[in-house]
Design a protein around this nucleic acid. Sequence first.
RNA 1: GCGAAAGUGGCGGAAUUGGCAGACGCGCCAGACUUAGGAUCUGGUACCGAAAGGUGUGGGGGUUCGAGUCCCCCCUUUCGCACCA
Length: 849
Amino acid sequence: MDEKYFPEQIERKWQQRWNEMKAFEVSPDDSRPKFYALEMLPYPSGFLHMGHVRNYSIGDALAWFKRLQGFNVLHPIGWDSFGQPAEQAAIKRGVNPRDWTEHNIAHMRGQLQRLGISYDWSREIAAHRPDYYKWDQWFFLKMLERGLAYKKVSQVNWCPKEQTVLSNEQSSGGICWRCGTTVEKRDLEQWFLKITNYAEQLVADIDEIEAGWPEKVLKRQRDWVGRSEGAYIDFAIKDSDKKIRVFTTRIDTIFGATAVVLSAEHPLLTELLQGSALKSDIESFATKVKSQRATHGDADEEEKEGLNTGILAINPFSGEAVPVWVANYVLIEYGTGAVMSVPAHDERDFEFAQKYSLPIRQVIAPVTHSQAKAEPTSVTGTDQSTDMRIAFTDYGVLINSGEWGGKLSEVAIEEMSAFAEKNGFGEGAVTYRIRDWGVSRQRFWGAPVPVIYCDKCGMVPVPYEQLPVVLPQTADFTGTGESPLAGVAEFVNTECPNCHGPARRETDTMDTFVDSSWYFFRYCDPRNPSAPFDPAIIRQWTPVNQYIGGDSHAVMHLIYTRFWTKFMRDLGLVSFDEPVKRLLTQGMVTNKVEGTEEWKAMSKSLGNGVDPDEMIAAFGADATRLFVLFAAPVENELRWSESGIEGAVRFLRRVYTMVWRWQNRLSAPDGDVRVDEISTEGRALRRKTHQTIAKVTSGFEQLHLNTGVAALMELFNQLSDFDVPPATASPNEVFVVREALEALVVMLAPLAPHAAEEMWEGLGHSGGLLGGEPPWPVADSELARSEELEIPIQVNGKLRSRLITSPEVSEEELKTAALADERIRSLIWGHEVVKVVVVPRRLVNIVIK
RNA sequence: GCGAAAGUGGCGGAAUUGGCAGACGCGCCAGACUUAGGAUCUGGUACCGAAAGGUGUGGGGGUUCGAGUCCCCCCUUUCGCACCA
């Protein structure tokens, strides 16, 4: 140990030593409990940013904490290395995407190592390497076999100027992000994965993870899947044998239906209009709506527009004939693409009805208080009322609804669904908002979809033994047209596995979310040449105990990986439904934007980024990490502060200096310790030590890292106040200092591991923190208990005095002592004491008049 | 527009869940050591007040012996959804 704290020297030393010792390389081990700590794998953009630093510092704190407690901790890292930016670099700068990516990985790996994150580097994986994406392709073939992967024509965003397909993000607002041209929709054959088959499970299994996932993530997932219970109802078309099926969640309002409204893309439309005079009007309206939708895809709501088709449909409940309309507000993708319009009880229908003067008929009345209690048998409502100012969308009591009148909505929904089913014009139904996952990308830098097209045999899956379908070294990166792979003849032209005739390869590659859907399973068995992983090994490590990442992945990635896990379960590869037990979505790291008072997420374009390497160079990795963990609760926004990081250095330096001063004394045996003769101050320090152990341990368990750091600072402050000179300290004093200082050093390790190792060694321990018995201290609740209590005394709820007592005093004694207190006596003199509230061990409140 | 969450010193944030508001850190102030201090150490630091004392957790009301914490209304901010029938 040096006299002074030199972080760069200490950090270099321990990074090297961990490396030599392979300190964080693990293998399955039944003798110890396992813990799988996982952070979302980074995209190798080339540079670590502060968001990464925060993410990995949290994960590393947890990994260390668990290791120090004796867990066998799997803590791996890898690279989400397929994707757009590599291809952009190729287009812009002419570099090869593979070289660019590998170069970035090498640089970022160095950055992570300088940060000293305790990864098992022997398990590092990268999505763009054939030994990884081979298994993406393997899974794809398994899905194909089971009918879960399929091809269908679908609309993509297409920039006519650049001749390229754009993602939704790149075409937001309906214009191309690069050239500003209005984006068109194009029909293209695309690959989809049938995530909708798992829609129900994706909602139902939330029960299994509810306790460990943030509420807001689960809410977004529920919304994304969009499960909705209701019924299909068939409206027969007058003078025809055709029916229009609608979906509704409010069958109880069906007597208020004054129209049936179809989406402009509804398939029945052309059929129904054969020979109609309005045919061409309606067709041009439909075309207009489609193009509106195409250009304004994600933009604001359009004004509602519609057209009466002149067709009539029969309400199966009332027998009433209502007009069939086409309108732009009915979505073809959801439900049946047709709705019954109930203006009185649906805001959209109300708006539409007002515009086109459709009747508004109230059929639900609010439940009054007395009705709610009494059996609502007869409620009279105003018939055909049209004077409603807004739609009444709550549940209530049915009126104007024939035999169903007087029933509560909840009851009517049940009974009317059953009635429809019994009479063959409807059935109860559940619909979902989630769509199948489009995984096709017309791109080079992704895993090729392992499929071959043969003129004779049609579409033929690549046989398993021919995997991986390897990406060519390079292609023509123009940034326009189809997938660059289409231009690589050696890739495209192949032989049909079936008939051995000439054939062509699929040139689409897969969405990078495929890579990240199962990567953390591969970490468990990263070099397996014959399977994505060995199920027996997987059983040792998974599910993930704690997953940490940004909440930008609250839906996409986290839905996909849950889906993938369920699919793997159905393949017999894993034995559980949910891959992640606990999830933490950490907050953003923000910084002031130059010249403003605004705090925004650090980014290159705003110029408010902070380079982790510079921080490490200036303050050390330990201080950088300590600050990041201390400055805010892990889930909150973290505002960057250079003076805050200086505070972290100060703290580490002070602890370091104290260890240095005590090291000779503490490296030797304590001498003749008489525990029962420890001084009052000594006992107070022990109490603080054990209170701190309890607080830090439970805090880390719940990832309350900021308060954990605060507790360690408090312990250190009290230790400083204890202040006996090491040279002359008695054995008892050495004993209590050792207890406090060793606990402090060990508990500091998850936050500042290099400094902690150095100090641990200074205190006379060889072999490192992980070299022997798990050193995490255990709190002794007996020692942590206070010897005396300070009880506040209130008069009418205001603090007026304090009482020092032993924890054992009775309620009666407390009351007497409080009333006898000099200050209290003068305050209550001349007043009537109405009541004395005594909370044992807590406080006394005297109520006077 | 709808929905959810959150509002505590100059700042980040604590508060054994209804019991001493402001732990810990940053910043600031004063002092010490220094040729020097953007180093280090010591002390102070919610607000008003000279003090006694009073006031304080976005605002207003309520429940309670007692409210940052529970209930009602309002305001603000952030996030999510945005025609999903």
